[in-house]
């Protein structure tokens, strides 16, 4: 949704939820505090003047540079960026939400960062969240059935993380 008026309404309804914005980008986006994402989506789905009734896509971008030489040059701190692409069927407009979470909860490797699940807002978020959990390692609190979806259930690691290393062996199958 383009236009600052809409964002002010969101700010008014849920103060403190919007923590950043970039309306000049190719796809203008709004940054949401990760713990408020379910509230914001609930508002967007049911109470906002433009009803965003469908979650089209959900992505996690891993901002992490495993190579220490290159890592010294980058401008950002390592983090995960959740990107939600919403769509309004009635108004035919899209909205991009972003949320930044740490790569590991409390910076303890292996502890997944937690984000509220959107299954209560759109039932279609179910599989998208499972895929994100499976490939990027984000734990969605409140998800009814958070299991791996594309990888086998006993797979280790989160393949779409930049520092992921393919296992050498899986049930006797050589990895590399």
């Amino acid at each position: 949704m383009r236009g600052p008026g809409f964002l002010e309404q969101l700010d008014e309804a849920l103060p403190g939820a919007v923590v950043g914005r970039n309306l000049e980008a190719i796809d203008p986006w709004v940054e949401i505090a990760p713990e408020r994402i379910a509230d914001v989506c609930g508002w967007l789905n049911s109470r906002s003047p433009v009803r965003f009734d469908s979650l089209q896509c959900m992505t996690v971008v891993d901002w992490c540079e495993p190579d220490p030489k290159k890592a010294a040059k980058v401008s950002w701190q390592p983090h995960l960026e959740l990107v939600y692409h919403l769509w309004s069927t009635a108004s035919r407009v899209s909205l991009v939400l972003k949320a930044k979470v740490p790569r590991w909860k409390g910076d303890v490797p292996g502890q997944l960062p937690e984000v509220p699940s959107l299954c209560g807002v759109w039932r279609g978020a179910d599989w998208h969240e499972r895929e994100v959990y499976d490939l990027s390692g984000v734990w969605f609190t409140g998800h009814p059935n958070l299991r791996r979806i594309l990888c086998p259930e006993d797979w280790e690691g989160y393949p779409l993380r930049k520092d992921y290393e393919q296992p050498l062996e899986y049930h006797g199958i050589r990895g590399r």
Partner: peptide, 9 residues
């Protein structure tokens, strides 16, 4: 209609 939209069909 609503089910289709909610699931992002």
């Amino acid at each position: 209609r609503d089910l289709a939209i909610e699931y992002g069909c």
